[in-house]
Nucleic acid binder design. Structure first.
Length: 574
RNA sequence: CGGGGCGUAGCGCAGUCUGGUAGCGCGGCUGGUUUGGGACCAGCAGGUCGCAGGUUCGAAUCCUGUCGCCCCGACCA
């Protein structure tokens, strides 16, 4: 029977008009292709339609309800679909389930919710400290940039012009139909663009700041929002407006600017690996992937659990391109007027997307302790009011005791969740949010001066832990979680990394249906490489700075056969 | 910006083919029973069916237009 004919039997009155629990709707379940995808089906395990299944269904397919069970059966995992079933959908569900963000009323823009924003604040705080340690100062530049500024650097225009939001008016007026419209009389003489990045406006400012070699270097960072009118958006990974940090520096010499570029890349790499527990490859972008207007672009590249690469941070050596365009000149020690050398570097809220896709599992987020909004949550368990009083008092005391402990130079962050919610539901909320440690305390624990501790990085149910031991070792425990997350991510990446020396192997590795991963290959940029990469939906991510896999000296380009000095990492990417 | 899909209660959807004035699940609230675990029973609240025209005695349903969102491509942190 075809889907279309059967569909009518099970939708409509039969289903909408209430299919009683206990009835089975005789959808042809024996056929491959008749199954519940799970993704949008909220019946979960109660749904009679189950995989195996591997084709598309027209729409929601949760028809047919299994016979009643004595106890409700919950899905095995908190997030549905699982990573294996539908990775992109899983990602969206994790963002939602972990309470990180939600879509807003504005197209392509998201609302970052407190739990997600707390992650960002932790990212900010740590990076900001590192920036200051490396001599940078924060400043703030305008959100609006005169359109003419963007025109000054040719490649820069080309790179950003097609995704700019433009402000053309400064007043609204009634449109005569009960609404509003931009007042024609209030048209701006020169349109303003909402910054997609600030090289131009900051460059123009720097031109005024720099007169003499004595003014250099200028080392500035700004935390800001930027807007890039993307056609397709995904929470955290690519939104129309996003939050980021952009560093902009000016130097007297090429060498100094290049050193700055590398130094900040190192800061990013160190942050990614140590704070986020996300292993990254530092490398230089190929010409095709370079920032518009840059002489060279460096990036940190991470591999997500679906084996696609994510550019997690960039650092650009801008040469004198922007100095020429913006007239950033200075008088040198010898009295000559010289153009300065500039750099820029940035990371964005995209890091949170990377964090999710590196660590989260089918039960939701797993926050690495160093960035977790809370290191531990205490869940009191009680029945009667007397128990409640005793347990809560114990938990309060435990909370302050834990807060006096330190992890990675910061006080341990603890939450006590005493909301009037059922225990199971409450526990799962925190699992989905990815709190590293769950500390459950009931009357029996209070009596025994003990706790029951679950680690989010393990599948185990947790273990009884004496209070004193928990308190004394919490720093160590968090550290071991942090390390375990990094090791797991590192292992996944290494398992997906291969050296490839023939085009046939390259094609096989990235063939449809293959898991893919990171391929280290000799290359030369040219039409052959471009065509093949486009065909396989692969891009050269970067040329690693440090010798990594396949560091066997010069070789031959996979695509053209020309001699090649270095290998690049190829992967599908976000 | 091309191809496809979808706008009905806070969320997920049925109802549209074959027009008769709106329903289910979850969530919310209230009461009760439970509870070392993502509970159960009962009751209540909640919708000008995206918007604007048209056809009709009558439109969620048919026609035209329009806006928005999602997916898949092309482009990108």
């Amino acid at each position: 029977m075809s889907w279309e004919t059967k569909r009518r039997d099970i939708t409509g009155a039969a289903f909408g008009g209430r299919l009683q629990t206990g009835e089975w709707e005789p959808l042809d379940l024996t056929k491959a292709g008749s199954a519940c995808r799970g993704g949008r089906c909220r019946l979960g395990q109660r749904c009679a339609i189950n995989p195996p299944y591997d084709g598309p269904l027209p729409r929601h397919a949760a028809f047919g309800i299994a016979p009643p069970r004595s106890r409700p059966i919950m899905p095995k995992t908190a997030i549905s679909p699982s990573r294996a079933e539908n990775y992109p959908e899983w990602y969206q569900q994790v963002v939602k389930a972990a309470d990180l963000a939600e879509t807003s009323d504005v197209r392509g823009c998201m609302v970052i919710k407190p739990w997600g924003y707390a992650l960002w604040e932790n990212i900010q705080r740590r990076l900001d400290t590192r920036f200051k340690e490396t001599g940078h100062e924060n400043a703030y530049f305008p959100l609006f940039i005169p359109m003419s500024f963007l025109e000054k650097e040719a490649e820069h225009v080309e790179g950003f012009a097609k995704e700019c939001a433009v402000v053309t008016h400064h007043r609204l007026e009634p449109d005569g139909a009960g609404g509003l419209r931009p007042a024609p009389s209030a048209k701006l003489e020169e349109p303003l663009i909402v910054r997609p990045t600030s090289e131009t406006i900051i460059g123009a400012t720097f031109a005024r700041w720099v007169q003499s070699y004595r003014d250099l270097p200028i080392l500035i960072n700004q935390w800001a929002n930027v807007v890039r009118w993307e056609l397709r958006t995904r929470m955290f990974l690519r939104t129309t407006e996003f939050l980021w940090q952009e560093g902009h520096t000016v130097h007297a010499t090429r060498a100094e600017a290049e050193e700055e570029t590398r130094k900040m890349l190192e800061v990013y790499a160190d942050f990614a690996e140590n704070a986020m527990a996300m292993p990254v490859i530092c490398g230089e972008k190929t010409a095709g992937e370079r920032f518009p207007g840059a002489v060279s672009t460096y990036s940190i590249e991470a591999m997500m659990q679906d084996r696609k690469a994510l550019q997690a941070g960039t650092s650009h050596f801008l040469g004198q391109n922007f100095a020429h365009a913006q007239e950033i000149k200075f008088q040198s020690q010898s009295g000559d007027i010289e153009y300065a050398w500039t750099t820029s570097w940035g990371v964005s809220t995209r890091l949170i997307g990377g964090l999710i896709m590196t660590h989260a599992d089918d039960d939701g987020l797993i926050a690495p302790p160093k960035l977790a909004p809370a290191h531990a949550v205490i869940l009191p368990i009680y029945k009667s009011d007397e128990e409640r009083a005793a347990v809560l008092a114990y938990c309060q005391a435990l909370k302050s005791e834990l807060e006096q402990q330190h992890y990675d130079g910061e006080a341990v962050r603890v939450r006590l969740d005493d909301r009037d919610l059922r225990g199971g539901e409450k526990k799962w909320q925190w699992v989905k949010r990815g709190v590293p440690l769950r500390i459950e305390v009931g009357p029996r624990d209070v009596a025994g001066d003990s706790t029951f501790v679950g680690r989010r990085d393990s599948d185990g149910k947790g273990a009884a832990t004496p209070r004193a031991e928990l308190v004394a070792q919490i720093g160590q425990t968090l550290d071991s979680i942090q390390q375990a997350l990094f090791d797991r991510a590192r292992r996944a990446r290494d398992e997906a990394s291969v050296v490839i020396d023939t085009l046939a192997d390259f094609e096989a590795f990235f063939a449809e249906g293959q898991p893919g991963g990171l391929a280290y290959c000799h290359f030369t940029e040219g039409p052959e490489m471009e065509a093949k990469c486009k065909e396989l939906k692969v891009t050269p991510r970067c040329v690693p700075l440090q010798p990594l896999l396949g560091d066997d000296g010069p070789g031959k380009c996979l695509f053209s056969g020309a001699p090649s000095q270095r290998r690049a990492v190829f992967a599908r990417s976000y």
